[in-house]
């Protein structure tokens, strides 16, 4: 019973945080400096790890597809397979998972520290709502940066697949055929679906991390616990949402 209560409380808290933060949307132009700083922290610093990971995901997809398809001489479809699985599923999910580990953890640690050392209380006594300067710029920044990160993940992953498909002995698929496959099978709609998913995951990762960080009470040990909690909740949320959002998008 207490567990259920706890979960519901988290849901309510996240919802309230979201509404409160966006209520301060009119103040955003006044804090453009903070927004740019957050875009830099979220986008620029996450890009290298997204690039490395998506390159190798693309590569391993091409490798596995080549290995399976060579038996039926279906190498021509490697492009379609790598292209579609990245655009529709792997690019948004893996980017969101990296975001949870790279940015979500940092945000929850920072906000938890601010909460524990009374910096958040100080903001409240100064009539500066923490949601306005701590949460809103981060939420808007992720909405701006997530599509950029996901598109980069798509392109780099496709490239990784192409290099592997051409250079591995038992596949030896010409790059032109590979990219032709992507062109024929990956529709704009597939990429759009992936971007919508990425946007939703990224938004929730940041929202949950902010929420968990700001709820922290106690001392240094609780800061660590908050970071763990933020990442675990984010990961579960990404995979659960993934199923439901995907099935919802298929109906439209």
């Amino acid at each position: 019973m207490k567990q259920i209560n706890n979960i519901l409380e988290h849901f309510g808290g996240v919802l309230i945080l979201c509404v409160r933060s966006f209520a301060y949307l009119p103040s955003l132009p006044l804090q453009w400096r903070r927004l740019i700083e957050q875009c830099f922290l979220i986008g620029y610093t996450t890009f290298p790890i997204v690039a490395i990971l998506s390159f190798f995901i693309g590569s391993v997809l091409a490798l596995q597809a080549g290995y399976s398809l060579q038996a039926v001489a279906g190498q021509d479809f490697i492009g379609a397979l790598v292209g579609l699985s990245l655009a529709r599923e792997l690019a948004p999910v893996m980017t969101a998972i990296l975001l949870a580990g790279r940015v979500g953890s940092a945000i929850s640690a920072e906000l938890a520290t601010m909460k524990v050392y009374q910096e958040v209380d100080a903001l409240v006594t100064m009539n500066i709502p923490p949601e306005r300067i701590l949460v809103l710029p981060r939420l808007v920044a992720i909405l701006l940066m997530m599509p950029v990160l996901t598109i980069s993940a798509n392109l780099i992953g496709w490239l990784g697949g192409a290099i592997i498909a051409q250079n591995i002995e038992f596949i030896q698929l010409d790059q032109r055929i590979y990219f032709q496959g992507i062109q024929n099978f990956v529709k704009f709609r597939d990429i759009l679906d992936g971007l919508i998913k990425a946007e939703i995951f990224g938004f929730f990762v940041i929202l949950v991390s902010c929420h968990v960080g700001l709820r922290t009470t106690g001392g240094p040990r609780e800061i660590g616990a908050s970071v763990t909690r933020a990442v675990v909740i984010s990961l579960i949320l990404i995979l659960v949402l993934d199923y439901f959002v995907t099935s919802a998008l298929m109906k439209f």
Partner: peptide
């Protein structure tokens, strides 16, 4: 709170570390 002008000096300072 919005209508009041009140300041609290925290015991540990509660300065913004960043």
């Amino acid at each position: 709170r919005r209508e009041l002008s009140m300041a609290l000096v925290f015991q540990a300072g509660a300065l913004f570390n960043s």
